[in-house]
Amino acid sequence: MYGNRQTKSLSGGKFFSIIVESLKGISQVIFIENAITGLLLLIAITISSYYIGIISLLSAIIGTLVKKIGGTDDNSIGKGLLGYNSVLTGMALALFLSGPYMWMIALVGSAVAAIFTAAMMHIMKRTGIPILTFPFIILTWFILLASYKLTEIRLNTKLLPHNLTDWKLNIAGEIELIDGIFNGFGQVFFLDNTLSEIIIVIAVFWAGKRLGVYALIGNVVAISIAYLLGGEHSLIALGTYGYNAILTIIAVSVVFKTEHNRFAFFSGIIAACLTVPITAGLGTFLLPYGLPVLTFPFVLCSWLVLSARKVTPNL
């Protein structure tokens, strides 16, 4: 009897550990290692769409299990560092694909993302540059592009390709700054729901006031630059130009900052501003393929500054 109880207790403990680690995988999307923040983010996602909430949780669990089965260092798993690409990949594929195999492709994609993340961590280990969301971006793009050659991988109709010769920039109408700020936070998780966005903001500030303030500054700066450069008002209001800036300033000015980086705040602002023209340019480049920009501007701008610090450490 005692042996059975002990076995059940150990099993329950392992299950709880997997859930906690999976929630940290969700929170690591915004560089936070906190299960409570992960739970708040999961609630925000589920409020916006219950099936995307289920996909995000399953993807996080799959990412964690792949690493456990693969024998990855427990410290890395516990921090959630090996699950966030799985979460984003699962969510993106569930949103941007359609058809009867959408769920299966999304969940298999989240497992592959975990393996891809491990491979990239090994490849980039000597550079000292973090992989960020690069595995999620590349894997998602390739799976979406495969839809042009594989009939059972079907693009969602909102990702239909556009001909650039017929493209027209619409800058009519007013911009609701508050909407743009909150939508910027929501777009980190592909969300367009006011309550969900408020919860995400709360989750970020819960993890750290400094983190929240920097994210807010990066978001506002990017929105302002997009407006001054004549960006499409609807895209600015939707947070299209804000979410990459949020991730970039957090990465450059907070997470990967050392005591030698005296001007980290300013380099973070510059990097956040740079995400705006890169988002616009990349969006134009991808229009004929019907692909979303995802977080590539964030990865590119963060890599630019973090690599430059190897030569100019004050940045």
Rank of each mutant, 00 (worst) to 15 (best):
I62V: 13
I270K: 07
S48H: 06
T258H: 09
A245M: 12
G13P: 03
L41R: 08
V293F: 11
A106N: 03
D192S: 14
C301A: 14
A114E: 01
S22Y: 03
V276L: 13
T127Q: 03
L41P: 07
V305Q: 04
I123G: 00
F16L: 07
G13I: 06
M124P: 01
L315F: 09
S110D: 01
S9R: 09
G290C: 10
I250R: 13
I175K: 10
K158E: 04
L164C: 10
L41M: 15
A92Q: 05
F256D: 06
T72E: 15
A280R: 12
N156T: 05
H122Q: 02
P161D: 13
T312K: 15
G71P: 09
G38V: 10
L291H: 05
G63R: 03
P135W: 01
G53D: 11
I32Q: 15
L42P: 08
G83W: 02
T37C: 14
K257Q: 13
Y289A: 13
A146F: 04
I19K: 01
H233T: 15
L294D: 04
E197V: 01
A207I: 10
I43A: 13
G3A: 11
I249K: 12
G70C: 09
G13V: 06
G186H: 08
L40K: 02
L160H: 09
V112W: 01
I249E: 07
I123T: 03
P135S: 02
L216K: 11
W167T: 08
T248D: 13
L58I: 08
I123Y: 02
I129L: 15
N261L: 07
Y101C: 00
L177M: 14
Q28C: 08
I278C: 04
M120Q: 01
T140N: 06
L159V: 07
L282M: 14
N75M: 14
L159N: 13
A222N: 08
A226C: 07
K67W: 00
M102C: 10
I278L: 15
R5W: 06
A146E: 03
